[in-house]
């Protein structure tokens, strides 16, 4: 699988996702700088977490107008897979590739906790195909603006079209280290898909749960299944 990680000034989870992908597939991802406008066709591009451009103006707003975005949009129209994690999700929203908005956490706190995600009944997508509906994975979040907000008609549309990838749930594994809907997002949404299922934006960080020393390996399991299904 050929993959790439888009890096902006202020991205800080780029190395983590590179390490995670290298654990799964022998071919190391290309590191793509935000000014890069020429790179080979890829199967997967990841926009990692962090604080691109210092979160100035709005989270992800300036990154979403970087030169690389045009190529990322071309990648999407070619049918390539695209994963935005945390700030990467905020960037995808700002580009308009995914709809809605990510606003300030309801409790005004930067929340860094484990969450339990429940896989939803979605359209065909490499990001959910490897899972049973209702299956739960434990993945940490770390953000200040992760409260997914959308007008009711859009929420209904996402729901009816099977474009809600996962929701925060209390789950069987719930304890005081786990946060349920840590940001107050509408309908407990933790991640959404594009109409073709090839683009996923998610607030939780799978690359931070790839080693038992992290406290869990569900992130590795999740990314492994995604990559298996992207390769086909």
């Amino acid at each position: 699988m050929r993959s790439g990680v888009a890096i902006f000034p202020g991205s800080n989870c780029d190395r983590d996702i590179v390490v995670a992908i290298k654990k799964i597939t022998p071919k190391a991802p290309l590191k793509l700088w935000h000014k890069d406008t020429e790179f080979p066709n890829l199967d997967l591009i990841v926009i990692p977490g962090g604080f691109s451009f210092g979160d100035y103006l709005r989270c992800g707003a300036l990154a979403a107008r970087s030169p690389i975005i045009r190529n990322i949009k071309n990648h999407v129209s070619r049918g390539g897979s695209l994963l935005g994690i945390c700030n990467g999700f905020q960037i995808l929203i700002e580009t308009g590739i995914l709809p809605g908005s990510l606003i300030r956490n309801k409790n005004l706190l930067f929340t860094c906790k484990e969450t339990i995600l429940e896989i939803q009944n979605t359209i065909k997508s490499p990001f959910t195909e490897g899972f049973q509906i209702g299956e739960q994975i434990k993945i940490p979040v770390a953000h200040n603006e992760g409260n997914y907000f959308a007008p009711k008609p859009l929420l209904d549309e996402l729901n009816n079209e099977g474009r809600i990838a996962f929701k925060y749930v209390k789950g069987s594994d719930f304890d005081n280290k786990v946060a349920y809907n840590p940001n107050g997002s509408s309908n407990d949404i933790a991640g959404i898909l594009s109409p073709n299922g090839k683009v996923l934006g998610m607030m939780p960080h799978p690359e931070r749960a790839i080693n038992s020393l992290h406290g869990g390996t569900d992130g590795l399991r999740f990314l492994t299944k995604c990559i298996e299904h992207i390769v086909g």
């Binding site: 707003a61 300036l62 709809p99 908005s101 907000f149």
Partner: peptide
């Protein structure tokens, strides 16, 4: 419309 405002919210 292109940058300064997020017209969704």
């Amino acid at each position: 419309e292109t940058l300064l405002v997020n017209t969704v919210i």
